[in-house]
Design a protein around this nucleic acid. Structure first.
Length: 577
RNA sequence: CGGGGCGUGGCGCAGCUUGGUAGCGCGGGUGCUUUGGGAGCACUAGGUCGCAGGUUCGAAUCCUGUCGCCCCGACCA
């Protein structure tokens, strides 16, 4: 492709809307433009990268006998109602001219399951694994980070159908391997972490995380074993009972205007870890009391699962007052009754704690768990933190990092097949529910994740497997006839040799073309310039210091070798089972 | 949805406190010079200051409302 006829508008200055590196660079280098909040146009460069990613993905899906198809974006309301997902906030809804309701597809379990229940009859039809790459629509409460979280985005989604749990496990493992190889081949480092399945399912599910400061998720990984988990999932070991014997006795202390843990601990000169944080939640509209240690944070995802609530939020002020008899900021477990109390493990071993007195401007000290208050349920309900002991091995310590969720794989079991009567005739002549799995990759988000992971101050550095072009060919002085003729010949030879080359033949100063080449980020740069007088051109690798001076006659071979070396570096290390 | 911030030529910003009819840099066009890391000079085009009301002789500037966008949080299948 010649730059003179391409469309890659670069920007010298960073648009004010961008904060994170991938967003800034994708805008500046001419990959993306915003149409509205969380709605982006993918310019030719970005689309080419995505198509290359898709190609790698297709190859990996092919090897596990996963078959590409395409489902509609318009999904009838009736289908969504079968699983109860029509009412979700993220669903975009619209009506046709006859006032029939549709959702814009935000994931396709309903559609694929509907198809499967019509077409799959016998256990002999299984297994089946189907996938598509399609635009998904989600009315996100807050799009962010450019293309990290958008309302319209490109997603790969796959679905497996198996005759029993064992076979489903096999499909799950096959997809996990395909995912590993895919991410390895597109040059994206990842961590596989245990995750919470949210509304989609609570069986085994794992996320592929690209570690990045701009990530929205907190990931904990063990420094001794291979265990890693999303913070919303990561279990916390119960603490040792180290407070010793109960000695102190309770007394009320006047704490005027001190409501937060920081304020009260400063006022009393105690540590936040000696506090019992008492939170009133509304669980499906009914109040519950939640106790965690003052220096801990409630994990709402864990809590919702333990309580079994579908809607869980901090209680409104009126409910807090009704439960505690005090203004917000002075709640404590002592003397509370008639409300279920959920206590985190760490609270139940406190022997000399501070907590709210359930009256304005008073706290209680010397509180002992079990003696001065009790609970209805004790469980793991706090967020795991950096420094916690590993829940899986004896010696490890958990460390936190930020991650971008680039893929998520789920075992669904019979959740959707039961809800939608998806069964087949089994070997024994009786109907049996199909065991499903579903698997997603955020294609547009992965694009951003690569840029987050691979850039420098000058621009993007693409892995060669997904770079929009393998080579940027620059003619330093377009108006120099000899240079242009030589560059043009090299361009033709490269194309003939099957090299994907971007020929910057614009009549711009050399500096402009160098800057744009760095921004765009193609991994190999060839410059035809001053050296041509002595019959040589320059070959440089993006992001690597130094360059090779190569005779014009050797440049094609040289580039092919470099290309092969770069591709070899991306060879997947994970083998299919 | 809660908190914070921002809407002024294509992009980045100043002007707003203290009202007087809009300015700078980059980018665009033309010409000349220049030509290996975002060139120089000259000329030039381009803005109902997000929108709607209001106050005022007069509003980018003050008031009210509204829409949009960004960040933090909530949320995130």
């Amino acid at each position: 492709m010649r730059a003179s006829s391409y469309f890659a508008p670069t920007l010298r200055e960073v648009p004010a809307e961008a904060e994170i590196p991938s967003h800034k660079l994708l805008l500046r280098a001419g990959y993306l433009r915003k149409l509205g909040a969380g709605v982006y146009t993918y310019l030719p460069l970005a689309w080419k990268v995505i198509r290359k990613m898709e190609q790698v993905l297709r190859e990996e899906q092919e090897t596990i006998s996963s078959v590409e198809m395409r489902m509609p974006t318009l999904v009838p309301k009736e289908l969504m109602e079968e699983t109860g997902r029509w009412g979700l906030d993220v669903v975009y809804k619209l009506q046709d001219r006859r006032k029939a309701d549709f959702a814009l597809g935000f994931t396709h379990e309903e559609v694929i399951t509907d198809l499967a229940r019509q077409e799959l009859r016998s256990w002999r039809d299984l297994p089946v694994m189907l996938y598509q790459v399609q635009t998904k629509f989600r009315d996100e409460p807050r799009p962010r980070g450019g293309v990290i979280r958008t309302r319209e985005f490109l997603m790969f989604d796959a679905y497996s159908f198996d005759r029993d749990v064992n076979a489903m496990d096999g499909s799950y493992k096959a997809q996990r391997t395909a995912y590993e190889r895919f991410f390895q081949r597109i040059g994206l480092q990842y961590l596989i972490v245990d995750a919470d399945g949210g509304a989609i399912g609570d069986l085994d599910n794992q996320e592929f995380m690209s570690l990045a400061d701009a990530g929205e998720d907190t990931v904990l990984s063990c420094d001794a074993c291979s265990y890693a988990a999303n913070a919303e999932k990561c279990p916390v070991n119960p603490p040792a009972d180290t407070d010793g014997a109960t000695t102190a006795s309770m007394s009320d202390v006047h704490t005027p205007n001190a409501r937060t843990i920081d304020e009260v601990s400063t006022f009393l000169g105690t540590s936040p870890s000696a506090f019992i944080k008492t939170l009133i939640y509304a669980a499906d509209g009914k109040p519950i009391v939640v106790l965690v240690r003052g220096d801990h944070t409630v994990n709402d995802v864990k809590l919702a699962r333990i309580v079994g609530a579908s809607e869980l939020e901090l209680a409104p002020e009126s409910m807090v007052t009704a439960v505690t008899g005090a203004p917000v900021g002075f709640a404590g477990p002592v003397g509370l009754s008639g409300v279920p109390v959920y206590a985190d493990h760490a609270v139940t071993v406190l022997k000399n704690a501070v907590t709210g007195a359930n009256k304005a401007d008073y706290h209680v000290t010397g509180v002992a768990a079990g003696r001065d208050f009790t609970w209805t349920t004790v469980a793991d309900i706090r967020v795991a933190e950096d420094g916690d002991s590993c829940p899986m091995c004896a010696s490890g310590t958990m460390r936190t990092t930020r991650g971008i969720e680039i893929g998520h794989i789920f075992k669904l079991g019979d959740k959707y097949s039961k809800a939608m009567q998806l069964d087949v005739m089994g070997e024994e002549g009786k109907p049996q529910a199909i065991q499903m799995g579903c698997y997603g990759i955020g294609m547009s988000r992965s694009l951003a994740a690569i840029v987050e992971a691979s850039h420098d101050k000058d621009g993007i550095i693409w892995p060669i497997s997904v770079a929009p072009f393998e080579v940027t060919l620059i003619v330093a002085a377009r108006q120099d006839d000899a240079q242009y003729a030589a560059a043009d010949a090299i361009y033709r030879d490269m194309k003939a040799a099957g090299i994907d080359v971007y020929f910057d033949d614009r009549d711009e100063r050399a500096g402009v073309k160098f800057k744009d080449a760095d921004l765009m980020g193609c991994p190999i740069r060839v410059v035809v310039g001053k050296g041509l007088a002595t019959g040589v051109v320059e070959v440089k690798q993006r992001g690597v210091d130094g360059l090779d001076t190569v005779a014009v006659a050797d440049v094609i071979d040289h580039v092919k070798q470099l290309r092969q070396r770069l591709l070899d570096e991306l060879k997947p290390v994970t083998e299919h089972a």
